[in-house]
Amino acid sequence: MIDVQRLRVLRAVAEYGSFSRAAAALHLTPSAVSQHMAVLERSLGAEVVARSTRGVTLTEAGQIMVGAAESVAAELEHAKQQVEQLSSGRTQLTVGTFGTGGRHLLPGALARFTAAHPDALLHVRQGEPEITLPLVRQGAVDLALAYHFDGPLPLGPGPNSGLRWTALLEDPLHVVLPEGHRLADRASLDIAELAPEPWVLGCLKTEAYLRRYAERAGFAPEVRGSTTDYFFACSLVAAGMGISLIPSIALVPPVPGVRAVPVEAPAPTRYVGVATIGRHGDRPHITAFLQALREQAARHAPPAKPPA
């Protein structure tokens, strides 16, 4: 039988990339961590870590076991929550969310859920997907409202594998210009037309995304401002600092002094969905909240189709 403590140690080794850093995080000695790994490898009959002078990396077997360790941790956390609910008599649900998703999708879903489950105890944790998705795997969050841009879902090989993704909506990005801009009255814009324009961006991910699309169009964007808030970025656009690339749901309510113009196909798009872990048929409160999110998302756009 595999010891749960050794799985916990393996998770730490995978997270920190070395025995010494994992030992410090777990308040163990590096020798104790090494012994845990050696015993785990003997019980499996396979190496779980590859050791080198630069640290340790997971083998294929190690990646499989880390995925199993995350699932075990999530199930234990869920069991703990169930026991706590027995004593409190109340269903508890913790929801992770990113900022604009929380602002536009979560309130309506929360209202629907609490109307049907008035005794439920809800908690909300805000964070970008790279923060909230691991929390789902660890069982610290029951589900996470998250997003990804064009490309693979954020659940492939790596720290988010094993999660279940439920697509909610497609969130196309728009070019935001000052309302007096020469292109502000256009029905749509090709990214290539914007080559001479300075840019103000609302998040680091959008900047990387813009640079990729701009490279395809044959130019390097001049970025004059970078923020972590789409609304602030729109305000800077209104002040004449540049133009921006903003997801649709972040354009409500509109900021005075700017115009949002759709991008011509292939339009850059953000895909919004919900990440859960394992089966949730035995967790009716998660199923109910997912349905509330679907209903709220349907008010914004048709259900999303993840890219091939």
Rank of each mutant, 00 (worst) to 15 (best):
Ala38Thr: 04
Val83Tyr: 10
Leu194Asp: 10
Gln138Trp: 09
Val39His: 14
Leu44Asp: 01
Ala195Gly: 04
Glu47Asn: 13
Phe231His: 12
Gly156Gln: 11
Ile131Gln: 08
Leu145Ala: 04
Val33Pro: 05
Val39Thr: 14
Val175Pro: 07
Asp171Met: 08
Gly102Thr: 02
Tyr209Met: 15
Asp142His: 08
Pro198Glu: 00
Ile131Gly: 04
Arg21Phe: 14
Gly162Cys: 12
Thr269Glu: 11
Leu210Lys: 13
Tyr16Met: 09
Gly278Met: 04
Thr228Val: 11
Leu26Thr: 06
Val136Asn: 07
Cys203Asn: 15
Gln126Phe: 13
Glu84Leu: 09
Arg270Ser: 09
Leu121His: 15
Ala111Phe: 03
Val56Met: 06
Arg270Cys: 12
Met241Ser: 10
His174Glu: 02
Arg259Gly: 08
Thr100Arg: 08
Leu143Phe: 00
Pro129His: 05
Cys234Val: 10
Gly67Ser: 11
Arg212Glu: 12
Leu44His: 03
Ala288Lys: 00
Ile277Arg: 05
Ala260Val: 06
Asp185His: 15
Leu105Gly: 01
Ser226Val: 08
Val72Ala: 12
Arg283Ser: 03
Leu245Val: 00
Leu121Thr: 14
Val237Tyr: 06
Ala61Trp: 07
Leu44Ile: 03
Ala120Trp: 01
Ser20Asn: 14
Arg90Phe: 02
Val252Tyr: 05
Thr100Asn: 08
Thr228Asp: 15
Val274Lys: 05
Val223Trp: 02
Pro154Arg: 00
Ala32Thr: 09
Gly102Lys: 00
Ala24Thr: 02
Leu122Ser: 00
Gly242Ala: 00
Ala298Arg: 10
Glu170Ile: 08
